[in-house]
């Protein structure tokens, strides 16, 4: 090997190796370390080994928040699935150009600021907002509905923000299906439900799981949505971590929750791989 060959290798590899050690591995190891420390009342960190933070996680108060957060994540994911599947299947009837244009149209809103879009929902959902005023003036409802500052508000916000992450992989998977297969099944007399269950869903399950991961994982961490649409009382794990770092001055406890989240994430990815998912397709838009 001559020197020139090594130069290209070095230039292409050293930056990424340094990057992955300094900006990924080191931060994660450091919070792992922090999670075994303790803190005094002004947030100073006492560097002596303790598992108190992991014991606190099992405290009923926090377990309740985890359960609620997971529930919000699961409901959000299911709603996204229920919207994305028919959307992708119905799109199949269209010509390719129309399909591509419509998928671009799905993307446009997400190229604008996500916070301001969430804010748009406040204007729509509040007690004297557009939806409630519209419904009352049409005499559909008498009393305004509670659409935000509760779990409903958070779920609407999450579904809205995360829907494209479900639509894109599901659409990609459905797009790959062999239309002849579906036609054959229909010709053989399979009803729609069976066609969906036995063919479409079976063939696209890894796409659906990919989407579900990309929806569920952010949904337990997006504190800004529960902050804006939940009225500050509906805590999800994201708020809990944020509070530990930015108000309760308890970095070690916040780190412990983060480590817990990382473990959950890894387990989910493992399931995804088991059912035949390709890790390279995660997060791809």
């Amino acid at each position: 090997m001559n020197k020139k060959l090594d130069l290209f290798k070095n230039i292409s590899l050293w930056p990424v190796v340094i990057y992955s050690f300094v900006l990924i591995l080191l931060p994660l190891l450091y919070i792992l370390f922090l999670s075994f420390c303790e803190t005094d009342y002004v947030g100073g960190i006492n560097y002596h080994f303790s598992i108190v933070n992991y014991l606190t996680i099992i405290d009923s108060t926090y377990l309740l928040i985890f359960a609620k957060s997971a529930l919000i994540g699961i409901i959000t994911t299911l709603i996204c699935l229920v919207i994305a599947y028919p959307f992708a299947i119905f799109l199949m009837d269209k010509k390719e150009e129309v399909r591509n244009a419509l998928i671009k149209l799905v993307m446009i809103p997400f190229l604008t600021n996500s916070l301001i879009r969430t804010y748009g929902w406040i204007v729509l959902l509040r007690k004297n907002g557009i939806i409630n005023n519209g419904l009352t003036s049409l005499n559909i409802i008498k009393e305004p509905l509670s659409l935000m500052y509760n779990n409903i508000g958070i779920i609407i916000g999450m579904v809205y923000t995360l829907l494209p992450f479900m639509i894109l992989p599901v659409y990609a998977a459905v797009n790959k299906l062999d239309p002849n297969l579906i036609k054959a099944a229909k010709d053989l007399g399979a009803n729609k439900f069976h066609v969906f269950k036995d063919i479409i869903f079976k063939e696209t399950i890894s796409g659906a799981f990919n989407g579900s991961l990309m929806v569920f994982i952010p949904a337990i961490g997006y504190f800004f949505i529960s902050d804006i649409l939940g009225g500050g009382k509906q805590m999800i794990i994201g708020n809990l971590i944020k509070d530990q770092f930015l108000t309760a001055r308890n970095w070690p406890f916040g780190s412990a929750i983060s480590i817990f989240l990382i473990i959950v994430t890894f387990l989910l990815v493992r399931v995804y791989k088991k059912i035949g998912g390709n890790i390279d397709e995660l997060g791809g838009m």
């Binding site: 002004v42 947030g43 100073g44 930015l246 108000t247 309760a248 001055r249 970095w251």
Partner: peptide
């Protein structure tokens, strides 16, 4: 938004 947040920001 709170004294606690100020303290956290200052001390970190």
């Amino acid at each position: 938004s709170s004294n606690e947040e100020l303290l956290a920001k200052l001390s970190s």
